[in-house]
Design a binder for these strands. Structure first.
Lengths: 132, 132
DNA sequence: CAAGTAGTTTAGAACGGTTTTAAAGTAAAA
DNA sequence: TTTTACTTTAAAACCGTTCTAAACTACTTG
């Protein structure tokens, strides 16, 4: 399925700007990135886009599941093209994230979900500190 | 141990402002709160404090382990007076956090920590969605 | 206890990431 | 083709947080 179809399937109009973003993000390689990182890549690819559009686009992509946002308390939002269920190592000094595949971790016992709610995703973050 | 001693033990001068904060936060009841929440409580308690001092104080308290900061991608930093090892449910709609005690969850298999790094804490977040 | 000094508080300005605004532009529907 | 709904944009606004620099306070030393 090409990127235009992916956008349409997701219910998004394949505008010029969204296609530029899709061509960068949906290239089959997973990455963690900020809005600013993406805007830089857009420039590098010979295109340009206002930061408002970058944010709009990321919000839409996220809402329809084309990308994810990682739960970290960093001051900049970090997105992830890996939408499979997985977890992260977080280097707190640098902010760098490293994927932990689902098979590498297992939650043996889970708490009871509070009344009236559903489990809407579990995220495990293992914070890393440099040795010594 | 009284709050003055707690501050001294933590290596912090027990200033008037830090005592006001300690008296609110270290009352034996756990809570999740933002800087603004705390400033409101300070006013409610009949005191006042500049927002810069609230932030300075939270940073110091956090660095010496009197409180923790929760890993969430919300736009406002959320702090926790529960410094025991534990996890959280996160209601993504409201931002509300609910503690998950360590005994209620068990990580059975853990990934190998990358070369040169140490495990510096694991945080599990179970995102909640309202049923229906 | 007095004087010195190192650390703390403060108001207000600055900062940085993100969202809003409102007008111009574009994709899809009729 | 005209209309309609959606999208993009630059610029401003926003909002949580940090910085600045001056006033203040806790502690140390004599």
């Amino acid at each position: 399925m090409n990127n235009k179809e992916k956008l349409r399937n997701a219910g998004l109009r394949p505008t010029k700007q969204r296609m530029i973003v899709a061509n960068i993000l949906l290239d089959g390689f997973n990455r963690h990135f900020t809005a600013e990182n993406l805007q830089d890549e857009i420039y590098t690819s010979g295109n340009s886009m206002s930061i408002a559009t970058v944010y709009n686009c990321l919000k839409k992509f996220k809402n329809c599941g084309l990308i994810k946002q990682v739960e970290t308390s960093k001051d900049t939002a970090i997105f992830d093209t890996n939408t499979d269920y997985h977890h992260h190592f977080l280097n707190e000094e640098t902010g760098e994230l490293i994927d932990i595949e689902n098979e590498e971790i297992s939650l043996h016992k889970l708490p009871e979900i509070p009344q009236g709610y559903l489990n809407n995703g579990i995220e495990v973050i293992i914070k890393l500190k440099r040795q010594n």
